[in-house]
Write a protein that binds this DNA or RNA. Structure first.
Lengths: 109, 109
DNA sequence: AAAAACACATTGTTATACTATGTAATTTGT
DNA sequence: ACAAATTACATAGTATAACAATGTGTTTTT
């Protein structure tokens, strides 16, 4: 078993799965970045580095798949809450379909 | 629906799925590069560019997941046939496990 | 004879995960 | 009361990989 290759592969696999997972989680609720990391860790055991998530959220925002709004806190720093857009929901559905297709394909080989 | 983003996403998803698919196909049989492209197209409808596959096969070779041997043809250019190694089979099994895990996770969100 | 297909390969471009680092407020531990 | 850890945002640099474009030479089809 080539453990090192497997780890590198998992990192590459994340390039496809992370946007998918983030959008899926944001369809359930709104979250701010730092919280998303913890929520995804809790839900999936997948650890996302901050240096991965923040740029990813910026990209999703630029693509109009999510929007954000700053929310003041009673104490502490304001939080940037992200919500999925209609376009985000539709795109997520298409991604879901493709995922199902690729999963079936892989299982059949 | 953001079609452009979806296509970009599929391209990123391939970074995880292609090595997995190539190893899976090579577990069934030996193939040479050019033939692999057609075989995978036939099996999965996924189109792999030559500029993607050849470097991928080089990487898998460098990681000892596959080996290759030149086979002379009665007519035409010799073909470089690839076969999966024991290490390749074991790594593929580990990849399969991780894939199952990530698929279950995504379905559950 | 020309065009298409076969079969290998590399170069340049673009996208993205991850490490390291930075800033600043707040909370916890002693 | 002070130090350390946590919360919360973000960016810069590095490594990896898909893909288009291009290249070489042979063989088959039209």
């Amino acid at each position: 078993m080539n453990e090192e290759y497997k780890n590198k592969w998992i990192s590459q696999l994340k390039k496809g799965t992370l946007p998918f997972i983030v959008l899926s989680v944001l369809r359930r609720n709104t979250y701010y970045g730092y919280d998303l990391i913890n929520e995804i860790k809790k839900l999936t055991d997948i650890v996302i580095a901050e240096g991965t998530l923040y740029p990813l959220l910026v990209r999703l925002k630029n693509e109009n798949l999510v929007s954000h709004s700053w929310v003041e806190q009673e104490s502490g720093i304001p939080r940037k809450y992200y919500q999925i857009t209609e376009e985000g929901k539709n795109t997520l559905n298409a991604m879901k379909d493709y995922w199902t297709y690729i999963n079936n394909t892989i299982q059949s080989i």
